[in-house]
Amino acid sequence: MRTCLVTGAGRGIGRAVARRLAAEGHRVALTARSADQLEEVAAALPVPSLVLPADITVASAVEETFTAVETRWAGVDVLVANAGAGVSAKLADTTDDMWQAQLDLLLTAPFRCVRRAVPGMVGRGWGRIVVVASVAAKRGEPYVAAYTAAKHGVLGLVRAAAAELAGTGVTVNAVCPAYVDTPMTDATVAAIARRTGRTPEQARAALAARQPIGRLVTPDEVAEAVWFCVANGAVTGQGLNVDGGAVQS
């Protein structure tokens, strides 16, 4: 049984990842800002779980979260850095605060988690780090400059960490989904509807059509890609696209 820590575990992809890890018999520590959502996820898991509400963008919260896992169980063997949110605005309308908030959540917080996890993993000679990035880490997207820049940055972090840790027993990978059927995409649909005058149904259909498979990706499909990165010790430094064929690499 491995000890796993999933950030952004209260809903969407994080919830699906927690279920997938639990299905393999691993105990799972769950962190996100919403305690109620975490408790709901934990109650449905068939393995020991640990609920750790926290705002992962606060520097001290990373240390406190890892320490709580280590105190209750043991060192973190599997880190899935999933917490995320998107902000949409024209480049000229993207404020410094919007820019910084996206970097804090999507790049700095994963960096702090990876930095905190690595020494213990290297010391034990085994570890798996998976960052949930985005296809926006692979290409430019309009109206999400801050989000896209942060996701490009976190993919760079993954590649650098994988290169540094190769041979230690620790792998570092990113999973890069397109539009996933999650509350985050619901917010995107609402924003498109407000901006364009389309109905929510039309906006959702437009997002689905951007994937060659013609539909949104499911959270379980992303979780399966995360599990592949955990299960396969020969895969490291990769950005695995889960996007219905939108970005071929």
Rank of each mutant, 00 (worst) to 15 (best):
Arg2Leu: 11
Leu5Ser: 13
Leu5Asp: 12
Thr7Tyr: 15
Gly8Cys: 10
Gly10Gln: 06
Arg11Lys: 02
Ile13Ser: 06
Gly14Asn: 09
Val17Thr: 00
Ala18His: 09
Arg20Thr: 07
Glu24Leu: 03
Gly25Asn: 14
Arg33Pro: 07
Ser34Pro: 05
Glu39Cys: 04
Ala44Val: 04
Pro48Lys: 11
Leu50Gln: 12
Val51Ala: 03
Val51Thr: 12
Leu52Asp: 03
Leu52His: 09
Pro53Gln: 10
Ala54Cys: 09
Ile56Asp: 09
Ile56Glu: 10
Val58His: 14
Ala61Pro: 12
Thr65Pro: 01
Phe66Ala: 01
Trp73Gly: 02
Leu79Pro: 07
Val87Leu: 13
Leu91Ala: 15
Thr95Tyr: 09
Asp96Trp: 05
Met98Ser: 08
Trp99Phe: 15
Trp99Met: 14
Gln102Thr: 00
Gln102His: 07
Leu103Met: 08
Asp104Asn: 09
Leu106Cys: 12
Leu107Glu: 12
Thr108Cys: 05
Phe111Lys: 03
Arg116Met: 13
Pro119Trp: 14
Gly120Val: 05
Gly125Arg: 13
Trp126Glu: 08
Gly127Leu: 13
Val130Met: 12
Val135Cys: 07
Ala136Tyr: 03
Thr148Glu: 08
Ala149Phe: 03
Val154Ser: 07
Gly156Ala: 02
Gly156Glu: 13
Arg159Lys: 15
Ala161Asp: 03
Ala161Leu: 14
Ala162Glu: 01
Ala163Phe: 00
Glu164Trp: 01
Glu164Leu: 06
Leu165Ala: 08
Ala166Gly: 10
Gly167Asn: 07
Thr168Asp: 03
Val170Tyr: 00
Thr171Ala: 06
Asn173Thr: 00
Val175Trp: 11
Ala178Arg: 12
Ala178Glu: 05
Ala178Ser: 04
Val180Lys: 08
Asp181Gly: 04
Asp186Trp: 00
Ala187Gly: 05
Ala187Cys: 01
Thr188Ile: 15
Arg195Pro: 01
Arg198Gln: 15
Pro200His: 03
Pro200Asp: 08
Ala205Cys: 14
Ala208Tyr: 10
Gln211His: 15
Gln211Asn: 15
Pro212Asp: 07
Ile213Leu: 13
Gly214Ile: 04
Val217His: 11
Val217Gln: 13
Thr218Asp: 04
Pro219Arg: 01
Asp220Asn: 09
Phe228Asn: 04
Val230Glu: 01
Val230Gln: 05
Asn232Met: 05
Gly233Cys: 13
Gly237Met: 02
Leu240Lys: 00
Leu240Phe: 01
Val242Ile: 02
Gly244Tyr: 00
Ala246Cys: 07
Ala246Gln: 14
Gln248Leu: 15
Ser249Ala: 03
